[in-house]
Simulated assay, not measured.
Amino acid sequence: MSSAPPSSPAIEIRHGQMPLVVARLRGPDVDAALAELEQRYGDAPGFFEDEPLLLDLSEWTGADRRPTPLERQALLDGLQRIGLRPLAFHGGPHGWQSALRERGLAAGEVQGPVAVRGTSPKADSPVTTAATPPAPSAPPLPSAALVVDRPLRSGQQVYARGRDLVVLAMVNPGAEVIADGHIHVYAPLRGKAIAGARGLTEARVFALALEPELVSIAGVYRTAETPWPDAVRGKPAQVRLASGPDGDKLLLEPLS
């Protein structure tokens, strides 16, 4: 006598992991936050490609300073306009929490280091130093690169998460281009370029005119405080990481 095979469940519920962009409001000045969003991303609606967001209100100061409904709405609209999708919040006064719950946001926690577009290494000196990669191995890169065809001005930041970044216009001083893979700039590179942001040591930076403020690969970086060699400054060049008996260092090579 044969028994019927057990039926597979129609639904499975389990804990998962979803990386969230974190927007931390540094104080109760919503107007200042909106002005900064406009200054950085005003000419790039949809900049963040519908990325999920946790709104961190832990630094909201002044228990008696309650946000008005118009301020809350304006901030959420501003974040959505640049492509962020508010899903959760952390901290904040009661006036924030109850209103955000009514909007469908869940209470959450900021846990561990969060990869946020615009994060860059901090150089205490022009000497090249190595940083510990945030993960033991870099994630595999998909074939599609993020392509940016507009100039990037001071204060603007682009992060190609899990892929290469291709920029077809100038990266001005004060702008940042960040990628988990390679960075290609088919124009002058005068801002900051951070390739291999999650530890990919094979990543490279290519530019038609190399004169950046900072260049970094997998946490090893160099700043313009040490003048760029004449062979590459303002010329087509690549930057790659090389390992040797003295540790990792950046190699700057002309592109012939």
Results as ranks from 00 to 15, higher is better:
L210C: 01
Q97G: 00
P9T: 13
G118R: 01
E176W: 15
R153L: 13
E59V: 08
A237T: 07
R222A: 10
L25K: 06
M18W: 12
S7T: 14
G27S: 09
P126I: 05
Q238H: 05
E176S: 15
R85Y: 05
L75W: 02
E49V: 12
M18C: 14
G155L: 01
G62W: 06
S3A: 12
A33G: 06
P188N: 07
G199F: 06
W60F: 08
I217E: 04
L146E: 04
A74Y: 04
R103C: 04
E109G: 10
L57Y: 00
L105W: 04
W228G: 07
S243K: 10
P28Q: 02
A35D: 09
Q39C: 14
A4I: 05
F206P: 06
A231L: 13
A203R: 02
P212Q: 07
D230S: 13
G244H: 05
M1K: 11
R150S: 14
P227K: 06
G92P: 00
S58Q: 04
G244P: 02
Y186R: 07
W60S: 04
A169Q: 13
L189V: 07
V167S: 00
Y41E: 14
E59T: 09
E12K: 09
A123D: 10
D180S: 07
L141S: 06
L252H: 01
G83A: 07
E71T: 04
L241D: 10
P142A: 14
V21G: 12
G62M: 10
Q73C: 13
S98I: 15
S58Y: 01
K122Q: 13
R163L: 01
L214Q: 12
Y186K: 03
R233I: 14
I82G: 03
A131V: 13
Q156C: 05
I13S: 12
D124W: 12
G247L: 07
A144P: 06
R101S: 12
A187P: 08
R150C: 10
S7K: 11
D248V: 12
Q156D: 08
R161I: 11
P254C: 08
L84C: 03
L146N: 00
S216W: 03
G27T: 08
Q17A: 14
L200I: 10
K235P: 02
M18P: 08
F206A: 11
S125Y: 12
W60H: 05
G155M: 01
V148N: 02
R101A: 12
D31H: 11
V147H: 03
G191F: 09
V177P: 03
V127M: 11
I194F: 11
T132C: 08
S256H: 13
P5N: 10
W60D: 04
Y186V: 01
S2I: 14
P86F: 01
P151D: 09
G46T: 03
P254L: 10
P5Q: 11
P113L: 11
A169V: 08
L34C: 07
